[in-house]
């Protein structure tokens, strides 16, 4: 009854909600192959016209940054406020820039 270890692989689903926007992570599901994953994703994640395009990728192909090292990993960007436009002092009479 339990059918252990014969589970279909897990897939991550990414959906483009309308033309011009990025594909965004929507969730995951199980499917035997990519074709089935795309069809299941349509039924599970786009029942109300939430998408016009679907990407699926097997979850075990995703590599992620390590959350425990996040502070050190993202540290290089922390002290570079000159990368933002608001860092620069320009005269008030400069209207268009």
């Amino acid at each position: 009854m339990s059918n252990e270890n014969k589970e279909w692989p897990l897939w991550e689903v990414f959906i483009r909600s309308k033309a011009g926007l990025d594909h965004k992570h929507a969730g995951s599901l199980h499917a035997a192959d990519a074709q089935m994953a795309i069809e299941n994703a349509r039924d599970v994640y786009t029942r109300r016209m939430e998408g016009i395009s679907i990407w699926v990728v097997e979850s075990n192909h995703i590599h992620a940054s390590n959350p425990e090292e996040a502070a050190a990993f993202f540290d290089p960007a922390q002290d570079k406020i000159y990368r933002h436009p608001t860092f620069y002092n320009l005269p008030d009479e400069l209207k268009h820039m």
């Binding site: 339990s2 589970e7 897990l10 995951s28 599901l29 029942r47």
Partner: peptide, 27 residues
């Protein structure tokens, strides 16, 4: 049915498999 599937996926991120959950339900 869709709600069940969203939630099973959420639970799977905690380290339990879909089949284990179904087994628990069925038994």
């Amino acid at each position: 049915g869709g709600h069940g599937l969203y939630l099973y996926s959420a639970a799977e991120t905690l380290g339990i498999t879909r089949d284990q959950m179904l087994h628990q339900l069925h038994t």
